[in-house]
Design a protein around this nucleic acid. Structure first.
Lengths: 359, 359
DNA sequence: CTGCTGTACTAAACCGGTCTAGCTATGGCA
DNA sequence: TGCCATAGCTAGACCGGTTTAGTACAGCAG
């Protein structure tokens, strides 16, 4: 005989299937004595529930879904993802909920996976990352009516999935304020993929701050988050006759790549170039010099996302959007006031530049 | 009405449930005309299979399981895991197979999860990592009789799950040979957790190589793979009066941490200390100086593991163990011959030391 | 015309649970 | 004594598929 079923237990205990089901699920309908007997028999026979059978009846899948529409390599390279995964797992595993993970080509495929998993009762809810400017996934999720947590920007107040986000705008402002305070007037920003909402927010914040502070230059360069583009863009920026005195990188992978390029080109960090990473991970701490970075606690973010999603699934939770604490800038050794003899002094008098319009 | 079922399709198409099932699964039993009609109706109604219902009948789950018994933080910190995950996903997603992921406390919990997922038909197979010296998981997997791929050491030839491994011994030998060839006589090894098989293999290989080459010293220090212990152990080693001229790190996280410590302590790399990492990732390439590292293609390993597992699941595959290409040493700038004036010359004449017995 | 084969299809069992309707025995109460 | 409420339990429908046994009919040989 294969795995025991509740029918087997019922036979052995001399009761009906229904009684066994009641007993095993701790619901009324059987006496305590019978319940104890049934539990003992179930234990003896080493019974385990068959999730598929339960799911047929519409029960929990005890799993949540995460679909990522980026190249598979990304997970390995981007600390943000692995940290997020870590945080998610920390909470999920405590609740014995598994993570159903899949990497797909593009948003279209991602939506297809949502539909499949939803209709197959594979998961109890979804975690959505990389919120886009006009995101086609949101309406699909609403249509599917499954619990979901979206990582990103405040929603329009109305319905739709729960949102969790950090204030990217404030964060960028704090970086620019800091750099301006120590004397920087030409700041570059290596941004991420332009159709992501958080990229847009950061670009806009930099532009606004630049206007407000009257910076000479503040330019955002979109990239694909890869170390390759980060390095290439850095090289281009540093080759310009009047190069920026500070560069803000949207990911630590790019920041570290940028640091490497500066080293190769003989540009001293922080003497001739200050570097700030928008993301803090081991990476930022262990390079030399250690990078000034925005300490977003991505692990904690993952934990919070998992907690919120489980709360929605259980219908116990505060079904409302949540803003994470604004990340704080951790100043390390990759930033300093620009050198007195730096190219900033050369040539014409500084003029107020409203920032080249990106994207 | 909720999601359409095959009963709905049957009603609309004017056939029986059975006919619909035959048509949708491409099996004989219906005429081509009827099949086309049924498929059209199914498409119109936007039908999708309900995996739970299929699983009840014993069909595929279209998911494979990976359970990791390490602190959740590990996934975020250790590039090995995220790279492995990437590789797995690359192949799995191409086959529309999801990854069922869970992080647990210890091996006991891990085994419990295996039993649960197996009996619940949640997954079609397992991926097992961190093979231990006497691994209790192996017999459980055999008992469960589900396809599995174990990442590590060659098996005993007999039954048991499929094995995939790289030759850790050869790899370590190549590192030691290289270091000895450029003149190093005192080598330290920051090893991983001692109950892992690969840790044992590397320790033994170092000891054997040391004897063969007649090195002055070759010591393995077990750690927990964390950057903290990597840094601490490095500090201890470098504080000794006769410090090693080269350190081999079992993970790149530790290697980078060690590099940081050397910097703090004013020990020049590679001038006074050569550093080799047993693991090559972005990390090793982007620090300064870039680390000489063993180029294990972990992404490719993940791909191969996924391919093999799917092959076993489909019963199409070469059900045999597989050895990955032995990783090659990539020499970068963190290694050089030991300085002429290094402490190696001081004091007594070099003696042959068989290596302090570790573990 | 009978018997045989093969094709196209239907009806119903089945997978392993959950859940509802209903049955029985018992006790409380007027 | 009669009536009702309730605890404790059973039988069986149900979830959405797959699969098997069986039926109806056509074609063909003898």
């Amino acid at each position: 005989m294969g795995r025991p079923t509740i029918a087997d237990i019922a036979r052995r205990a001399g009761v009906s299937k229904g009684a066994v089901s009641f007993a095993l699920n701790g619901r009324p309908g059987v006496s305590e004595a019978t319940r104890a007997r049934i539990l003992r028999v179930a234990d003896e026979m080493n019974w385990r529930p068959h999730s598929a059978a339960r799911a047929l009846g519409g029960a929990r899948a005890d799993a949540v879904g995460l679909v990522i529409a980026r190249p598979a390599r990304t997970i390995g390279v981007e600390p943000f993802f692995s940290q997020l995964l870590s945080g998610l797992q920390a909470v999920l595993s405590a609740h014995s909920v598994a993570l159903h993970l899949m990497v797909v080509e593009d948003t279209t495929a991602e939506i297809e996976v949502y539909r499949n998993w939803a209709s197959e009762h594979r998961v109890d809810g979804f975690i959505v990352v990389d919120l886009q400017v006009r995101d086609p996934r949101l309406e699909v999720l609403e249509e599917l009516a499954l619990p979901a947590v979206v990582l990103g920007g405040p929603g329009r107040g109305g319905g739709g999935p729960l949102r969790i986000w950090a204030d990217d705008r404030e964060a960028m402002l704090s970086i620019v304020d800091y750099l301006a305070a120590i004397g920087h007037r030409r700041i570059a920003h290596l941004a991420g993929l332009p159709h992501f909402q958080h990229t847009q927010r950061r670009i806009r914040a930099l532009r606004d701050a630049s206007r407000r502070l009257g910076l000479e230059e503040a330019v955002s360069v979109p990239t694909d988050f890869s170390d390759a583009e980060g390095a290439a863009a850095t090289r281009t920026l540093l080759s310009r006759p009047r190069r920026p005195t500070a560069i803000v990188y949207d990911s630590d992978v790019m920041a570290v790549a940028g640091l490497g390029v500066a080293g190769e080109m003989g540009v001293a960090v922080p003497g001739e170039l200050s570097i700030v990473s928008f993301d803090d991970s081991v990476l930022a701490r262990i390079v030399h010099p250690p990078l000034t970075a925005l300490s977003r606690d991505t692990f904690a973010l993952g934990e919070q996302v998992a907690r919120s999603l489980l709360a929605v699934v259980d219908e116990t939770g505060p079904g409302r959007d949540l803003q994470m604490p604004t990340p704080r800038l951790t100043v390390r050794e990759s930033t300093s006031p620009p050198a007195a003899g730096s190219p900033v002094r050369a040539g014409v008098a500084p003029t107020v530049d409203s920032g080249s319009e990106p994207v």
